[in-house]
Amino acid sequence: MSIVLILEQILNGLQFGVMLFLMAAGLTLVFGVMGLINLAHGALYMVGAFAAAAVAGLTGSFLLALIASLAAAAAAGAVVEIAVIRRLYDRDHLDQVLATFALILIFSEGTRWIFGSFPLFLDVPAALAGPLSLPGGIEYPAYRLAIIGIGLVVAALLFWLIARTRIGIQIRAGEADREMIAALGVDISRLYTLVFALGAALAGLAGALVGAIQSVQVGMGEPVLILAFVVIVIGGIGSIKGALVGALLVGLTDTLGKVFLPQFFGLFLEPASAASVGASLASMLIYILMAAVLLVRPSGLYGGSA
Rank of each mutant, 00 (worst) to 15 (best):
R297S: 08
R164C: 02
P125Q: 08
A146F: 10
V124H: 12
L58Y: 15
L120I: 01
T193G: 15
L145V: 03
Q9G: 06
S273M: 07
A72C: 14
L161I: 02
G219S: 13
F31T: 07
W113K: 01
I234M: 01
A76F: 09
M180E: 03
G168S: 03
A228F: 15
L120S: 07
L209H: 06
F229A: 14
V84N: 04
A73V: 03
D95K: 11
L294D: 07
L252M: 00
S215K: 00
I181E: 10
A25C: 07
E8G: 03
A49P: 05
S305Q: 15
L105T: 00
A40Q: 11
F264M: 13
A56F: 10
L70A: 05
F268H: 06
L157S: 02
L132G: 03
Q15K: 05
S108Q: 15
G211L: 01
S283C: 12
G137W: 03
L158I: 06
S189C: 09
E179V: 11
G199K: 13
Q263H: 15
I171Y: 10
M1I: 06
L194G: 13
L105C: 00
F115A: 08
Q170D: 12
L227I: 12
Y192I: 14
S276W: 15
G130T: 01
N38L: 11
L22V: 02
L14F: 05
V245I: 10
I169K: 15
L249P: 00
I85W: 15
G26S: 00
L66P: 08
I114D: 10
M23A: 11
V233L: 13
F264T: 08
V230Y: 13
A243R: 07
F159V: 05
P262V: 03
T59N: 04
L145Y: 00
L39T: 02
G110I: 00
V231S: 03
I162L: 15
L128W: 12
Q214V: 13
P125T: 09
F16Q: 02
L20E: 02
G300I: 09
L194V: 06
A272I: 09
M34E: 08
A155P: 00
V124R: 13
A183R: 03
I181V: 14
G26N: 04
I162F: 15
A206Y: 08
G221D: 00
A228T: 12
V195Q: 11
F196M: 09
A243S: 08
L256F: 04
G110K: 01
E109A: 01
L194D: 06
V55M: 10
A51P: 06
L209F: 12
L244N: 04
E81A: 13
